[in-house]
Design a protein around this nucleic acid. Structure first.
Lengths: 344, 344
DNA sequence: ATGCTAAATGTAACCGGTTTCATTCCGTCC
DNA sequence: GGACGGAATGAAACCGGTTACATTTAGCAT
């Protein structure tokens, strides 16, 4: 313990003293710009190096009023969609000189509010949130600070925050249309938990008041195994259902695997369609028919929108990104399979 | 433009003035603890609410010397392994009152150094990095600030930073042994880019100086399609190779899909084994034989190690996490398939 | 009443930088 | 030779909180 005591932070004044200049001069050297003579600059730099001086971010921030940090609130990182989104977001934000703090909400509004509070406490200059359902607490917080906040994964021009996202209901409807065009009537809809998840709820809206088809809704945890198990249960015995429409690719893949484990041919006997277009969905056999959601693009656009807002004060306008059907006739086919024949 | 001008930040002095108390008292109310009379407290709180006052994080940080922010440098977020790791890391760090800034390196040492500099600039109190290969620039930076840094995804007690991770070489060797036990001699090793990736290189070491088997190494981008394509090419014609050992599950799944697309039976004709144990690997048919890497546990352990270091100053000791073979005989079987017969 | 203690509050220094403004120094021009 | 202008540097205020220490006030024992 002999020498370990009293390890005070090295400050700019220490440097100034060592280089025998004023703090102002050190500050100038630090920020490169001002006019400092070559000799002085070298002397100061030497002192900086000798003392291992690293300027305090906080002290800097207090003067500039800027932290160069923004936060993202996402349900989870453990899902390909959000992690791809964040990957693009982080990359683009870095281009604007902004760092990204992430916090996961686990779809819990209370936790979301608490995490948001935490982010504000550490001084984020802006926020990226998922979906448009906020707790009043969080709304109040945003209001109070009038913090730039961009809502993503959801397009809604009427929402009080700018949204950058796709139309979830429309994406689900594209998937549905594909099945209906193939003549499918009895459709199983696989979806993740809808409580607290407005994206899922929006997608489910596509099935409200649709007189054409007959739906069976199956809620399950958002993982491949759950959907695989569900499919094995659903199709263990012959039934009228000729298609699975999964509200996310993770579940669609699970359904595909489950059906294959039962020896049911896709799309021969049963059609499967997903939403998301994960990279792996292109590689299954058959490749998965799905609705592509441009999450990387969403990440970049959201980053730009937030960065402009933070840097220039210009509040972005809502931005709608187009979803698009991929591999339309890969894991979706016309009704004709044995399953249906048997079932009828 | 009439009223928009001059929107100065609301400060603690404003609140003090409005509530007709000193700044010290406001600060006390803010921090809850000190002894303030009920009446005063209410008056101050009213002023805070009326003015929408939110304390400045930077000002706070400058006094406490703490930012309560740590950074993580990972190759990418767009990979299940890292995103699961970060999900666990973030969750656990939150428990210690620490926020997480993420930065992606794309396996580029220069970018890593640059991002690390950025993290230090915003005032992170500690860092989580992947692997043990640092650029000298980054090492110098760590040294200079003597910043708490924990290296993950790699176990190496001799490294100059504490590591929390698994033994990559050993994990690869477990996978290899499984194949060798099944009598496999000619093995295709699928792996991602090894340049700048010490985890991959460590795994590849498992195959050096192994006299028993004959390896064909195939480097490819780390995605399902690449491995699927590779498998289709590799096995389009009969060949001696009877097994694919993929250094990550993403590639193993790709190989599995590719083989299935060719109508080659797994594990009947060709065995496939991966490393990682992604959730989806349990759901394929057959389920993937793989070496489980405890990434969530690693996230929690790394969080704890770093938090203790940051909060209490206790430098953690290296921690080794055990990897474990999963579903040993699912997509791996004894040599006996047609492919080999034809090939020999 | 007087003195003492604890509670409540205020004053002012301080954290570690940035920045304004003043000052010094030097070369140049008339 | 003295006035002028720009470059280089320094002194000190300032950013927005926290906190050590001083001061006031009230309650209570003597």
């Amino acid at each position: 313990m002999a020498g370990a005591a009293e390890k005070r932070r090295v400050t700019l004044r220490d440097v100034a003293q060592m280089a025998d200049v004023s703090t102002a001069t050190v500050s100038r050297v630090l920020n490169g710009n001002a006019l400092v003579s070559e000799g002085t600059r070298a002397r100061v730099q030497a002192a900086i190096d000798a003392l291992h001086f690293v300027p305090s971010a906080a002290a800097r921030a207090i003067n500039s009023g800027r932290t160069h940090v923004v936060g993202a609130l996402v349900p989870t990182l453990d899902h390909a969609i959000f992690s791809r989104f964040l990957d693009a977001l982080e990359d683009e934000l870095a281009g604007y000189g902004l760092s990204l703090v992430v916090a996961t909400t686990k779809e819990d509004p209370d936790r979301e509010a608490e995490r948001a509070r935490g982010l504000v406490d550490i001084g984020v200059e802006g926020l990226i949130v998922s979906g448009v359902t906020r707790s009043p607490v969080l709304d109040a917080l945003i209001e109070k600070r009038d913090l730039p906040v961009v809502a993503t994964s959801y397009f809604d021009p009427s929402y009080h925050l700018p949204t950058v996202g796709y139309d979830n209901e429309r994406a689900a409807r594209s998937a549905l249309r594909l099945l209906q065009d193939g003549g499918h009537q009895a459709i199983s809809v696989y979806h993740g938990p809808s409580a607290g998840n407005d994206r899922t709820r929006a997608r489910l809206k596509a099935f409200r008041n649709d007189p054409q088809s007959e739906f069976r809704f199956r809620a399950m945890p958002l993982d491949v195994s759950a959907a695989s198990d569900a499919a094995r249960r659903d199709f263990a015995e012959p039934r009228r259902t000729t298609a699975v429409l999964a509200l996310s690719d993770v579940l669609a893949q699970g359904a595909l695997f489950g059906l294959q484990a039962l020896g049911i041919s896709v799309p021969g006997d049963v059609s499967v369609v997903g939403i998301d277009d994960l990279p792996s969905s292109a590689a299954t056999t058959p490749a998965l028919t799905t609705v592509h959601l441009p999450v990387r693009e969403m990440g970049r656009k959201a980053a730009t929108a937030l960065a402009k807002w933070v840097e220039e004060g210009t509040r972005p306008s809502p931005e709608r990104l187009d979803s698009k059907v991929m591999r339309a006739s890969s894991s979706v086919g016309p009704v004709s399979g044995i399953v249906r024949r048997r079932g009828l």
